[in-house]
Design a protein around this nucleic acid. Sequence first.
DNA 1: AAGTGTGAACTTTTTCACAGCT
DNA 2: AGCTGTGAAAAAGTTCACACTT
Lengths: 209, 209
Amino acid sequence: MKIKNLPENTLHRLVIYLNVLESMERKKIESISSEDLARRCGVNPAQLRKDLSYVGNLGTKGVGYSVKSLKFSLKKFLGRTEEWNLVLGGLSPLGEFLLNNRDIQKEGFYFMAAFDTREENIGKVINGVSIYNLDQISYVTKAIRVDMAIITSEDKPEEYLEAFLSQKIKAILNLTSTPLFTEDQDIKIENFSFPMALTKLSFFLKNSR
Amino acid sequence: MKIKNLPENTLHRLVIYLNVLESMERKKIESISSEDLARRCGVNPAQLRKDLSYVGNLGTKGVGYSVKSLKFSLKKFLGRTEEWNLVLGGLSPLGEFLLNNRDIQKEGFYFMAAFDTREENIGKVINGVSIYNLDQISYVTKAIRVDMAIITSEDKPEEYLEAFLSQKIKAILNLTSTPLFTEDQDIKIENFSFPMALTKLSFFLKNSR
DNA sequence: AAGTGTGAACTTTTTCACAGCT
DNA sequence: AGCTGTGAAAAAGTTCACACTT
């Protein structure tokens, strides 16, 4: 049980464990051993136990883990018992899809506002979320707490990033095809795009024939 | 210059380098040093050079790298000079979004068919792609080459996975909230979901206050 | 008897530092 | 003179193996 900084790969795996446990709970599985859960998560059982030891002493020796309570411990540890306020950067097709998507809200992530730079989009309301001009961002951040931003504008992703960082938003999910980085260790940027994910698969296929 | 198995993190970074180079090319930057590119990619310059050494001798000592030719070498190495045939598993909102999305095709990934299990969806055509019943998959794989599958059905993701594996599809992008795994080393599964990505951010925020 | 939690051993990855090419 | 490519050193991450608890 440590409070030190978690390796990035451990964080990644903890998120996987949480989601696999949620799927097991839906299947009414009540308890599980590290061996069994590890197999379902594609990892070594010792690795799973070591990862969980960052979170706490969660199991019972000689018995295993309760699915429900392990899931709750992970959820708490990962900050997922709280609710988080999001803003969207860029009313792209993907951005519009996300605003209309219920799954993200269901998990406790709420879009509070969206930003765009094209005059014709400003003032629109999509699924209850208003679209503002990016220059007006400070008015929005004055009025509401913003925890995270999702950038989906393929056009000028850096411009959105700058605007969000200027408002002291510290967590960014960048879904454009241009990966974004910052030196600042106080800020976390996650980069993902569909073509990037598919590229890992194309490399795999190319090398397995 | 090795042909050995590439570490997963190196693959991840190579994909980032490729995308950052493409963005630099759009900005008309013609050449770059490892130090400069590394900073734009959030890595150590030695790491960047070591990563690139898996691909080949790509730079010029005392000078640096040509953006255009480094980009091309990476593209080739990652299998992105080829075209790849996709199928979709599950006509979910995200699935429908992907079928309608031009960006994925533009990168050389082509949807050839989509599958669903709900009778009312079978026979529909979305953006030129026909929806088939999942039980009929073998007819489709007999007629066309399928390289990769994208699973977006939150309902029974495992069912789609099984069907795709039974058809010897070796590369899967799973976009549902249930991570999927297989023992089989011949098969590569990439797992991603928006809530999982946001969870990494929520952990970061929870621990930075 | 069974399965967790964890130091210790091992493996892999990252960073350093410099020889060598342009 | 400057920057790459890479062995060697350092750091980090993974797996083993077993003491310990139920």
